[in-house]
């Protein structure tokens, strides 16, 4: 699996982990963003629909990983985001960081997901129980 991907099917975190890890790494951290049952305002959510500008998002993932390489030498990250229709409980995004030691693995994973949410060209439509939907930004 590529380190950076936009996918339409279920994300397998172990596949991403295998792509990121190397024998130099004694620490692996993983963040999974999962569809939850309520919107930020408390409304019940039946699912999310994600859309992306795929070429831009992949470039942004690679830029974020490059920044991590500068900030945390020796750390490798992988970023996979799913698009299309997702139900509650499904993984929308996986970020994995592997490092010789754990502090940089935690820090890099946090940096990666925060930056993905802040700037990746991905959009989310919350679907509500009454059949309506709304585009929401981070």
């Amino acid at each position: 699996m590529s380190l950076f991907a936009i996918v339409r099917d279920a994300i397998d975190p172990r596949t991403l982990e295998a792509a990121v890890w190397s024998e130099a790494c004694g620490a692996v951290t993983m963040f999974l963003g999962v569809v939850r049952e309520r919107a930020s305002d408390g409304r019940p959510v039946t699912g999310l629909v994600y859309e992306a500008h795929e070429a831009m998002a992949l470039t942004e993932f690679a830029e974020i990983a490059h920044e991590i390489g500068q900030k945390y030498p020796g750390v490798r990250v992988g970023i996979v985001h799913r698009i299309g229709e997702l139900r509650v409980g499904e993984i929308a995004v996986a970020v994995c960081a592997a490092s010789p030691h754990r502090p940089a693995a935690f820090d890099a994973c946090r940096y990666a997901i925060d930056e993905v949410k802040a700037r990746a060209s991905i959009w989310k439509n919350e679907r509500y129980a009454d059949g309506t939907g709304e585009w929401v930004s981070n």
């Binding site: 963003g33 500008h53 998002a57 997901i113 993905v116 060209s121 585009w135 930004s137 981070n138």
Partner: peptide, 10 residues
């Protein structure tokens, strides 16, 4: 030319 609204990934 792409018009990009505020993003909402993750």
């Amino acid at each position: 030319i792409a018009l990009l609204p505020p993003v909402g990934g993750g």
